[in-house]
Nucleic acid binder design. Structure first.
Lengths: 111, 111
DNA sequence: CGTGTAAGGAATTCTGACACG
DNA sequence: CGTGTAAGGAATTCTGACACG
C-alpha cells in the first residue's frame, strides 16, 4: 500500500533494450506482443517506448506461455479474463466500502 | 525483505534522460554529481549510464541540499558518515547473530 | 565551484517492409 | 503466425573542452 513502492513497480521508465536484456526476448518480439495487445508501454514525446517492472513481469509470463505453444490470441483472451475478475473484485470492494460507510455514517455522523 | 521488491528499488535500468525528467536535474548536473562521487550509476557494455529508483531518490536529496547552498564536498562527507553508521550497525547485527547462534548451538546442538 | 553549451561520434530506437512458413 | 533482418532517419548518450564567475 506504500504509494512509493507501488510506483517503482508501475512507473514506466525502462527502454526496450533493457527490457530485452531483462526478459531474454528480442526487441522484435516485444514490439510484436504490443501489436497483439498483450503489453502497453508508455511513449515518450518522441515515440520511444517505456516499460515498468510490472510490464517486464508480464513479458516473462508471456514468454513462458509462448514456449508452451499458446497463441497470442489465446493469451489476450486469458488476460481479459484476469482483468474482468479484477473489475469484479473492485466492484465488490466498493460495494463493501459503501456498506461500511453507510454503517458508520448512521452511527457516527447522524447529521 | 521481499527480494523482488528490493530489486525494483536497486536494479539499475533507468537511462539519464529519464532520470533527468524524474528529478528535474539537468544531465550535466547528474553527471557532475557522479564526478563528485555522490552517485554511482552502472554502465552498460557501451558506456551508457543506468540508474536505479534508489539512485533517483538520492539525487532528489542531493538537489535539495544543493539548493540549501551545501557544497558537493560536504555532501560527500555526509554520505560517508551515513555509510559508516550502516557499517557499524552491520557489525553489531552480526555480533548479535553470533551470540544468538552460540546460545542456540549450546542448547540445541550439543555436539 | 557548479553548470551551460557546441562538437563529433557512437549506439539506440522507430517504422514499414520483405522473408520464411 | 511469429520472428529475423536490412534500411534510413531521428533522438540519445558520451567525452573533453571552453565559458562564466
Amino acid at each position: 500500500m506504500d504509494p512509493s513502492k507501488q510506483s517503482y513497480l508501475t512507473k514506466k521508465v525502462i527502454s526496450i533494450g533493457v527490457v530485452s536484456e531483462l526478459t531474454g526476448l528480442s526487441e522484435r518480439q516485444i514490439r510484436y506482443y504490443e501489436e497483439r495487445k498483450l503489453i502497453f508501454p508508455k511513449r515518450t514525446d518522441r515515440g520511444t517506448r517505456k516499460y515498468s517492472f510490472s510490464d517486464v513481469e508480464i513479458l516473462v509470463e508471456i514468454a513462458n506461455k509462448m514456449e508452451d505453444g499458446i497463441q497470442t490470441t489465446e493469451l489476450r483472451r486469458e488476460m481479459n479474463k484476469h482483468k474482468d475478475r479484477e473489475k469484479e473484485n473492485n466492484i465488490k470492494k466498493s460495494m463493501i466500502r459503501g456498506q461500511m460507510n453507510a454503517h458508520f455514517n448512521r452511527k457516527n455522523k447522524p447529521l
